[in-house]
Amino acid sequence: MLKDSPTESRFVSRISISLPEKLLVELDSMVGDRGFQSRSQAIIDMLHKSLMEHRREFGQDVMVGTITLYYKNAVPGLQKKIADLQAVHIDEVISSLHIHLANNETMEVILVQGPASKLQDIADEMITCRGVISGKMQLIAALIPPLHPLPEKSSKKG
């Protein structure tokens, strides 16, 4: 079973891989540039990202993440359309933050949680809106704990 975080495991398994010399040189360069403590740490990071991407693309796991949008404010109705999409998907959209940038542009970050395929559909709806310059969804295999559980409904009438 895969752990959600490579640091959660108490047990470590050793494996061996063979790399072309050029790839090894690039790996060592990246390890140094990014400040990893070892090749293993860098490879664990890359594998974790790749496995999360696989789970996002092919799984139904409930995940948490962000949808980041970069768009032009001047496009009529775009901000309302994005707000309306968030309201339609209120079960998956946790919160959002936007910041106005220079040149009448905005960056918006939307925190989401739900089944990966549903979140991808929501991201696609937002990213493909006319006026969105670019967008990206980033997911991790973690959950946000319930903020405030709703009271159970009583079946008694009184």
Rank of each mutant, 00 (worst) to 15 (best):
L51P: 00
R14P: 02
A141H: 05
F58N: 11
G59C: 08
K3P: 01
I140V: 15
Y71D: 00
K136T: 09
H89P: 03
D28N: 15
I140Q: 08
A42E: 08
K153Y: 10
G77P: 03
E8T: 08
R14D: 05
I99A: 11
Q120S: 12
E125R: 15
D4L: 06
E21A: 15
Q37Y: 09
K81H: 10
S29M: 12
K72S: 11
M1Y: 07
C129G: 01
C129Q: 15
A87V: 06
G131L: 03
V64I: 10
R34L: 13
K22G: 04
D28I: 05
D121M: 11
G131D: 05
E108C: 06
M1V: 13
I90T: 07
A123V: 01
E21Y: 07
D84E: 11
Y71T: 01
L143F: 02
S134D: 10
S154I: 04
H148S: 12
S16F: 05
K157Q: 12
S155N: 12
C129Y: 00
I17H: 09
A74E: 14
N103E: 14
I17K: 10
L27S: 04
E57F: 04
I90D: 06
A87P: 00
L150F: 06
I44T: 06
L19N: 04
L51F: 11
V25Q: 13
R39Y: 05
S16W: 04
Q79N: 10
K118I: 10
G59N: 04
T7A: 09
P146M: 13
E152Y: 04
L19A: 08
I43Q: 02
D28C: 07
L47N: 03
R39M: 07
R14I: 07
L69E: 00
L23P: 00
L150C: 05
K157F: 06
P146Q: 13
G65A: 09
I67W: 02
S29W: 05
E57L: 15
P149H: 15
P6R: 06
L51C: 05
A141N: 10
A83T: 14
E152F: 07
S40W: 01
M46L: 13
H54Q: 08
R55M: 12
I43M: 11
S18K: 11
L47H: 03
L147E: 10
S9R: 09
H100A: 14
V88E: 15
G131N: 05
L23I: 12
S95Q: 09
H98P: 02
Q138I: 12
I140C: 13
I67D: 01
S155E: 13
I110A: 02
S16G: 12
P6C: 03
G131W: 00
Q79A: 10
D121R: 11
A142T: 05
K80A: 11
P76D: 06
C129L: 15
D61T: 08
S117C: 04
S13F: 14
I82L: 14
L143Q: 15
M46A: 14
M52N: 09
P151M: 06
